[in-house]
């Protein structure tokens, strides 16, 4: 039986201590090889379920033309934008073969629940 919390990406204990984890829903509500969206003050965040116990979070909007990445096809640890087929690596946020990068967010999975860093709630400062 495994029950340990799964973190993506890996954080140091110090970094993790800074997080304000907020339970945003059940893991089973995100289809495997699929995605769901969370609305936050920082804009829509896409949660990609790349495996039974693996979720990545990035900005939902494609840096190319703003396509909703959560509607794209999830393959391996990648997603393809539904509008113009840009492919992103979900671990790093990097676009493959393009000079662009997605903002990524820390996700924690505990006992079938998905946790996001609650600081996303706070409004981003102008900086």
């Amino acid at each position: 039986m495994t029950g340990a919390a799964v973190l993506t990406p890996k954080l140091t204990p110090e970094q993790e201590g800074l997080m304000d984890w907020i339970d945003i829903g059940a893991l089973e509500d995100i289809p495997e090889r699929g995605a769901r969206v969370v609305k936050t003050q920082a804009g829509c965040v896409a949660l990609f379920r790349t495996g039974p116990e693996e979720v990545f979070a990035t900005a939902d909007a494609c840096p190319h033309r703003g396509g909703p990445l959560s509607e794209g096809i999830v393959h391996g640890r990648r997603v393809t934008c539904p509008l113009h087929s840009w492919v992103f690596d979900l671990e790093s946020g990097a676009a493959l073969g393009e000079d662009a990068r997605l903002v990524t967010y820390a996700v924690r999975l505990v006992a079938g629940r998905v946790l996001l860093d609650g600081r996303l709630l706070a409004k981003r400062s102008a900086a």
Binding site: I22, I24, G25, D29, I30, R36, V37, V38, K39, T40, Q41, C44, L47, V114, L116, G118, L120, L121, A122, K123
Partner: peptide
């Protein structure tokens, strides 16, 4: 319907 809505809306909670 739930599958078509956002998983959560943190803007409202804030």
């Amino acid at each position: 319907g739930r599958a078509y809505a956002p998983l959560a809306d943190l803007t409202r909670e804030a």
